[in-house]
Design a binder for these strands. Structure first.
Ligand SMILES: [Mn+2]
Ligand SMILES: [Mn+2]
Ligand SMILES: [Mn+2]
Ligand SMILES: [Mn+2]
Lengths: 222, 222
DNA sequence: AAGAAAATTTAGGGTTAACTAAATTATATT
DNA sequence: AATATAATTTAGTTAACCCTAAATTTTCTT
């Protein structure tokens, strides 16, 4: 299913999958920004992926793309690799949760299905990675997960942290230092309407976080 | 030291290093064969590597190449990655000695120095890989190792297996089945002059091996 | 020392995946 | 509805890395 595909293609599909969890289609510019390439480069790649046999995405000029089932499968395969690797590096080599992402981002493209399988077994078929992100099953089904980000909470609400975005090492170190890790419980003390800052009670601490941060933390309301 | 270098370059340097353990220079055709590419492709790459700043090898038209100290360093770095990874896969994920090579051959190019270091620590600064091949030190010094291959032994000589080539999975499975693994002891019962076959006593077994096999096993005479 | 064989290089081409600059299309504002 | 702005695509390049076919150079054989 994945023999011909280059690392670049795998990264495009993974990023498009993540973008289309939020909106129905992913735009050229949004893809370009996450990929760190010029928009013109994205256009070229999207045409190739749409022309692939089988097509990996559906491309409508000036209107962005949506993955086909085939494209979604490849994306989930890579996401499974990524998250299993993150957990493996954390558990087996003692990597911190702020260090695993970069390494996994390169390894995800080169490990075999055999290695994926051995890691999953060794870790006891885990369901979440070190950031609380759900690991797609062997059958490539993405377990249910919260899509409610912290910045959508109102004053007075209590919630439990389910997962956080994994790609900003500095942010991860900060979150760890204030106890905002998966399973941590918190209460919104105050919401400032002007700048959308939240004052949070986290254990004994009180923390004030801006929306750039709170958008990256997903919670379940208690 | 290795930031700009592509995976292809790393593979060329590794293979040239291995070829020049035997002879003083590596020929275009020998490199092409081990790389699995056309000789014309090798010529192009050798020019690039010789023109690199710093030069990674010295290239004399029609006379093959020799690595520079810079090229040798890169090769040893990759070989260290490869052998540490083989042992790590074997020890941590239960891979067989016939399964580790292919996986390590891809991973060797993408792991960070951080990961190299964590693996080495986790394994207790090991000196040899699952095939008995010496692992270059952190300072990129290749430990001393036997260059006497089994096919050079005479009738009546006894020896201990030090290491075997790692790239033929079928051969490795066969060698395992007859007990020809690192540290195994053997005696040459007979040497057939016509075809260079060796009859070996290995434990309770008697095994007859042709030179294509005995050339890939390196020993210390007892 | 020629001629044959083997090894190597040159020439020309293809794919992947990026780039910049210019042109085009869509969307938002007035 | 026209215009301005933003998003996107097209066109033209570049670099890495491979290929085949043809030409050249070296080495081997007689
Ligand atoms: Mn990646
Ligand atoms: Mn993660
Ligand atoms: Mn390799
Ligand atoms: Mn080995």
């Amino acid at each position: 299913m994945r023999e011909n595909l280059t690392h670049a293609i795998e990264d495009y599909l993974k990023i498009i999958f993540e973008l289309t969890l939020e909106q129905p289609r992913a735009s050229t510019n949004a893809i370009a920004e996450r990929m760190g390439v010029a928009p013109a480069s994205v256009t070229g790649m999207l045409k190739r992926l749409a022309a692939n046999e089988p097509p990996l995405l559906e491309y409508r000029k000036h209107h962005g793309v949506e993955l086909t089932p085939a494209g979604r499968q490849v994306a989930l395969e890579i996401i499974r690799h990524h998250r299993l690797l993150e957990l493996f590096l954390h558990e087996t080599l003692g990597y911190g949760w702020d260090e695993v992402h970069g390494e996994a981002d390169r390894l995800e493209h080169v490990i075999s299905e055999e290695m994926e399988e051995r890691i999953a077994q060794r870790l006891g078929e885990p369901q979440v990675d070190p950031h609380g992100q759900p690991i797609p099953t062997r059958e490539l089904i993405l377990p249910p997960h919260s899509t409610l980000s912290l910045d959508q909470l109102q004053s007075g609400q209590s919630a439990r942290v389910e997962r956080v975005e994994d790609d900003d090492a500095d942010l991860l170190r900060y979150l760890y230092s204030v106890g905002l890790v998966p399973r941590a419980e918190l209460t919104v003390l105050e919401r400032s309407c002007f700048d959308d800052n939240l004052s949070l009670q986290v254990g004994a601490h009180v923390v004030v976080l801006g929306p750039r941060v709170t958008r990256q933390i997903y919670v379940e309301v208690l």
